[in-house]
Simulated scan of single mutants.
Amino acid sequence: MKPTLLILAAGVGSRYGGLKQIDSIGVNGATILEYSIYDALRAGFGKIVLLIRRSIEQDFKAVFSEKFKNLPLQYAFQENDMLPPDLVHLGTARQKPWGTAHAVWCARYAIQEPFTVINADDFYGASAFQVIAKELEKVDNQSNEYCMVGYYLKNTLSESGSVARGVCSADKQGYLTTVVERTDIQQTEKGIVCNLQAEPIYLTGNELVSMNFWGFTPTFFDHAEKMFTDFLKDNAENPKAEFFIPLVVNHLIQHQLVKVKVLSSKDEWIGVTYSADKESASKKIHELVAQGKYPSKLF
């Protein structure tokens, strides 16, 4: 069974200043997510699910309808009122999205096979898709054996401002033991620091971090719904609370409900958190095309 690629593209782009998911970064106007789709299909993925908001559907289709007309792609949607039964009313006044784990849960009706989750605005590299596709081919739909591709923190920072990362720890067998969401991470004169609004925490840069490159099976949807129900009851009145994927994964690991194998990629991660990151990201991708690693026209 071929795995599915789920691309999280419903973000509002507040730090970037617009819809970076559809911004031209690569050669011939290509967006970053187009390179991810190209890499995924080459690695053996059978279907692409693009998760967006209804309010930006026409923007996406204006950019991608012609490019993707021959691809095995479908859209799914994340809205704040998409909540478990009996809790829908909690989303009526919500402005901020509920978070990445909620986004994955919203795609549950479009996915019936093992799948990979990625961000639309992160460039992960071809080998990341190859190693995770190979891993997902080993599991069935009911497996609680998950996986992730990790990157070194020092290679994932932005020169333009702070970032959030899931800092990971693994055991000697290569399985994830904890993943902690750290916010406000940035390079300072004193080193890499996070938690700037409270007591600063210093990091070495060699920490393994999640860049939201996860491999799950459909069992994740049931696990997430149970946790999300409890999360909503505790956080419905908190407009800033978010239901992150690392929150779910960490809980499942600690309660020995799943195992998550940590994989690695030889390729460089490239991202655009801020608009100032665009020039550097574009330059790196153009270099990859010049080296022959990608065609000048992807689709």
Score class of each variant (00 low, 15 high):
Phe123Val: 07
Leu73Lys: 06
His89Val: 07
Val131Lys: 09
Phe64Arg: 03
Ser143Tyr: 01
Ala126Met: 07
Ser127Ile: 13
Lys69Leu: 05
Ile132Glu: 11
Phe60Ser: 03
Asp122Trp: 04
Tyr151Cys: 12
Ala93Val: 07
Val117Gln: 06
Thr100Gly: 04
Lys138Met: 03
His89Cys: 05
Thr92Ile: 11
Ala133Ile: 02
Pro97Gly: 08
Pro84Tyr: 15
Gly91Asp: 12
Phe115Leu: 07
Gln142Glu: 11
Pro72Thr: 04
Ala62Thr: 07
Ala93Ile: 06
Asp86Asn: 04
Ala76Asn: 10
Gln78Lys: 00
Val104Gly: 09
Leu90Tyr: 10
Ile132Arg: 09
Cys106Met: 02
Pro72Gly: 10
Trp105Pro: 12
Arg108Met: 14
Ala126Gly: 04
Gly150Glu: 14
Trp105Leu: 15
Tyr146Gln: 08
Leu153Pro: 13
Glu79Ile: 08
Leu73Gly: 06
Pro85Ala: 15
Thr100Trp: 01
Pro114Phe: 11
Asp122Thr: 03
Ser127Val: 12
Pro85Trp: 10
Ala107Phe: 03
Val104Arg: 06
Lys96Thr: 07
Leu71Tyr: 12
Ala120Val: 06
Thr92Ser: 09
Asn70Gly: 09
His102Asn: 04
Phe60Ala: 01
Tyr152Gln: 13
Arg108Ala: 14
Gln95Trp: 10
Val149Tyr: 11
Val139Cys: 03
Glu113Leu: 03
Phe60Thr: 07
Pro84Arg: 15
Leu71Ser: 09
Glu66Phe: 01
His102Tyr: 00
Ala62Ile: 01
Val149Cys: 13
Leu136Thr: 04
Glu66Cys: 00
Tyr152Ala: 10
Glu79Met: 10
Val139Glu: 08
Leu90Lys: 09
Leu87Cys: 00
Leu71Lys: 10
Met82His: 11
Ala93Leu: 12
Trp105Cys: 07
Ser127Gln: 15
Gln78Pro: 00
Leu73Asn: 08
Gly150Ser: 15
Gln74Tyr: 08
Pro84Val: 15
Glu137Tyr: 07
Ala76Cys: 15
Asp81Arg: 08
Pro72Asn: 08
Asn80Val: 15
Pro72Val: 05
Gln95Asn: 14
Lys67Gln: 10
Thr92Asp: 10
Lys134Asp: 12
Lys138Phe: 00
Glu66Ser: 06
Ala76Thr: 13
Gln78Cys: 03
Glu145Asn: 10
Phe123Ile: 04
Arg94Pro: 12
Ala128Pro: 04
Leu136Val: 03
Asn70Glu: 13
Cys147Ile: 04
Asp59Ile: 09
Tyr152Lys: 13
Tyr146Pro: 12
Tyr146Lys: 01
Thr100Phe: 01
Ala128Gly: 10
Phe68Pro: 13
Ile118Arg: 01
Phe60Asn: 00
Ala76Leu: 08
Gly91Phe: 12
Tyr109Pro: 01
Thr100Ser: 12
Arg94Ile: 11
